[in-house]
Amino acid sequence: MTAPLAAEGLGKRFRRDWALRDCTLTIPDGAIVGLAGPNAAGKSTLLALATGLLGPTEGTISVLGLDPRRDASVLADVGYVAQGAPLYRSFTVAETIEFARRTNARWDDRVADGLLTVLDAKTRVGALSEGDRGRLALALVLGKRPRLLLLDEPFAGLDPLAGREFLQLLMDGVAETGATVVIASHVIADIERVCDHIVLLADGRVRLEGNVEELLGTHRILMGPRRPLGTIRGVREVVRERHSGRQLTLLVTTDGPIVDPSWTVDRVGLEELLLAYMAPERLPTPQPPEKVPLRWHG
């Protein structure tokens, strides 16, 4: 089964800055992938490369097994909503749907019909609320019946209710079509609910990638009195180490159960895990009487 999205050594440079570098990843079929990372991490660049709107400076990207620039026809199976959900503001909702119907080979009217029960067909897109525009953009991509959905910051500008409704519509569409989804968002909380796979980008590089359940299962937080570290049974690698007063907190990857009674072992939440794999200097340290440089394995 060809992976819906795969990259090998992918890099993109704008003038002198590398927006993306050394990006190698494979998205599993049918997964709902969270593409996480701070702003300007390269998330939008990666998605633009996947749709052929940008061409790689180095490396390759393949979408459903094809090069999106050489085989632009693959876009018939890809639904893409760019940041800000760009649409023609002077078009009415009905005209926008008509546009999508006429420029797509495959089109299912039922999705649009569902949308029209909530939105007035004659409203101009420019007059819609952000939530409604997002809903419209989502209906348009779902109407294509794509095999891969790429959404760039779909929650930006949405209030929590609109965000929840968006997610409901999205998940319903995915349940129906079995599409693979990649959602780029710099707010982990928005996508935590649905992602089973995560790709973390920061400063243009992949910092972490994998199945969420697996990642959460193999990382632990260890807390204990401050002391020089030896090897700890069950710990494969220390990802992050923090001191505060007399307490030492470690984020570790495990290769077995940790039974050492001198450590309190806790599971780590997804957001904290991702934060740890981003640049450590970003992290607000609790109350550091003494600032010790963080040792970061990444």
Binding site: A48, T51, S73, L75, A82, P86, Y88, T103, N104, K144
Partner: peptide, 15 residues
């Protein structure tokens, strides 16, 4: 200018 090319050029029609 308006970024709508990201909408128009990612349907099933080639540029």
């Amino acid at each position: 200018e308006h970024g709508t090319h990201r909408f128009a050029w990612t349907q099933s029609i080639t540029r």
